[in-house]
């Protein structure tokens, strides 16, 4: 019975989607907002990468919420996974090659991650992409030596302060009588490293928050007891 109703539901949805597909014209839609942003972003925001101008400028509010979703998922994940029982078995340390490789990779990954975060307003990349690389920099050593513990206190402090500073920069604009999340500071010269006002600061906050969030979530998962 349930199988039958699922199949019927699927059929209905499939027909709906087929109907949409038939009626669609490919590659002809007019991006009216996109065009307006493409012609205004250089002057209004001052970031050479217009995607960044959208992510942190025009739709910065979305980005704040997205950070909050990651934060919430990490908090809820901690709640679900609970504490590790002290008697649980640990994986043995990895061999020499993996350990040495992890040690070598660590500084490189940190530098690449920070580079990608700080150039987010100029080139493809930014806080999310760089944050993920930062997280992996801190997570790979844990894969090599499962016995070592990451300091959850430090991770949650970085995460809290980075998230709060994003909102704080947004609130600063409100003290000046502007709307929440209005970009601050001088826009500078288009394409320079120090340009686009407060956007690089925001991306730094995003990068640190994403990095600590993901590192925390991954270590939580790796610290939870394995199921045999």
């Amino acid at each position: 019975m349930q199988r039958l109703s699922s199949a019927l539901f699927l059929l209905g949805l499939g027909l709906l989607i087929a109907a949409i597909f038939r009626g669609m014209e490919f590659g002809t839609a007019a991006p009216i907002v996109g065009q307006a942003i493409n012609s205004a972003a250089a002057e209004q925001v001052g970031a050479a990468n217009f995607v960044t101008a959208v992510v942190l400028g025009y739709r910065g509010f979305d980005t704040l919420l997205e950070l909050t979703i990651l934060f919430t998922a990490a908090t809820a994940g901690g709640l679900v996974l609970g504490k590790r029982s002290p008697t649980a078995k640990r994986d043995p340390d990895a061999g020499f090659i993996l350990q040495a490789g992890a040690d070598l990779l660590f500084p490189l990954l940190v530098i690449v991650g920070l580079y990608i975060i700080l150039h987010g307003h100029l080139t493809p990349g930014g806080g999310f992409q760089g944050g993920v690389i930062l997280a992996s920099a801190f997570f790979i050593p844990i894969l090599a030596r499962p016995g070592t513990r990451m300091s959850h206190a430090a991770v949650s402090t970085i995460e809290g302060l980075a998230g709060a500073s994003f909102i704080f920069i947004g609130l600063l604009a409100m003290f000046g009588g502007e709307a929440f999340l209005t970009p601050l500071m001088d826009r500078g010269e288009l394409g320079a490293l120090l340009s686009a006002g407060s956007l690089p600061l925001l991306y730094l906050a995003v990068g640190l928050k994403v990095g600590s969030e993901l590192a925390g979530l991954l270590t939580h998962l790796s610290e939870s007891e394995a199921v045999d």
Binding site: P31, V33, G34, Q35, I37, N38, A41, F50, V51, A53, V54, V55, Y58, R59, D62
Partner: peptide, 9 residues
């Protein structure tokens, strides 16, 4: 240029 909005979304 491509529309930047969907990429951000």
């Amino acid at each position: 240029m491509a529309d930047p909005v969907p990429q951000a979304l």
